[in-house]
């Protein structure tokens, strides 16, 4: 499984993400945003406050919330 980014706060499953932008509506920290040229989703881990509002706001269920959701191979590498 490929991932756009991950750390302990959230990670995004690239295969599921359709780049709609729904998650950006709830991200007060502006850690999630759509690039204005490509309209692809960008996740800035430094800005992420870990509020997890994006997890349930994502219609594609592409955003996972915590370390326990990580595939075992990824979790083992942390």
């Amino acid at each position: 499984m490929s991932k756009k980014a991950y750390k302990q706060r959230i990670y995004i499953e690239a295969e599921k993400c359709v780049e709609c932008g729904a998650c950006t509506a709830v991200c007060g920290a502006k850690a999630l945003r759509l690039d204005k040229t490509t309209w692809k989703l960008i996740y800035n881990v430094q800005k992420c406050q870990g509020c997890m509002l994006c997890v349930s706001a994502c219609p594609s269920r592409a955003i996972k919330s915590d370390i326990e959701d990580l595939p075992s191979a990824v979790a083992a590498a942390l």
């Binding site: 359709v18 780049e19 204005k36 309209w39």
Partner: peptide, 25 residues
């Protein structure tokens, strides 16, 4: 709307698409 910010009643309001432009492209 695509600019990411709209001024309404004197307030700057962030905008969000639900339709994927990258997929449409």
């Amino acid at each position: 709307l695509r600019s990411g910010m709209v001024t309404l009643e004197g307030k700057q309001i962030p905008t969000t698409p639900l339709s994927s432009l990258s997929k449409a492209r």
